[in-house]
Amino acid sequence: MKKSLLMRALGAPWRFILRALWDIQSYTRLGARAVANVFTPPIYLRETILQMDRIGIGSLTIVVLTGFFTGAVMAIQSEGALRRYGAVGMTGQLVALTIIRELGPVLSALMLAGRIGAGIASELGSMVVSEQISAMRALGTDPTRRLVTPRVLAMVVMLPLLTVVCDSVGMLGGWLIASYKLLISSSQYWSDAMNAMAFSDVVGTLVKPVVFGLIIATTGCYIGLRTSGGTEGVGKSTTQAVVSSSILVIAADFFLNNILIYLAPLMNR
């Protein structure tokens, strides 16, 4: 009652802003509840492991392919840039820095935003429109606990692991090009790559995917659970989940980079 009166009084642009604020509030609340549920029973262990399998093992192929080709492309691209300075030998360093600092975490997250974010939103969306969510509540289960928490937990655990796989395969792809096309010796490539890495880079490549995983899972769940309007609504939710989580991942990456650069001197001491 109160809300609709306020909205009518303020007009269309304000209505949009209020709507957005309301969305942010309920999104935050859902995320907070999903995380808080991890620390109190009951925990749906079977569902969590099932989701880990789906997210982790299920996404292995796309993450490996993405990592491999990105690493290879970085090596090919570095040749042109480095030859000008007579520094082709430093290919290992360049591939390592771009892949491990940036492309590994971000590209894995974007691939999973497409694959898993869409999957979560469409699954939960269909459950809403076919009244399965209502049925679940009617039978005494909290859907946040049963559906959202396992997905968030699985995503937060699996995405860092997938990122490590992506990083490693990316380095391997770079090595293949470096040794067979650029004729750099393997020992030079690997030692160069190792030397370029600082402790803060390792921390970054593991912390970023934790945040990205949280974003992708909670966005997919939030948008899926507020689906309305039948099967058409499910399609809309799916698209929206992919778009929103991808943008949020890239935006979060910007802020995380700033924080990590600020903290790097402390970590590398």
């Binding site: 076919s130 399965q132 209502s134 005494g140």
Partner: peptide, 18 residues
């Protein structure tokens, strides 16, 4: 949850968990 325990609900299309 306590209240709902005493109520059975039959949904329109069954709403079975897929």
């Amino acid at each position: 949850v306590e209240v709902r325990r005493g109520i059975g609900m039959v949904f329109q299309e069954g709403a079975l968990f897929d």
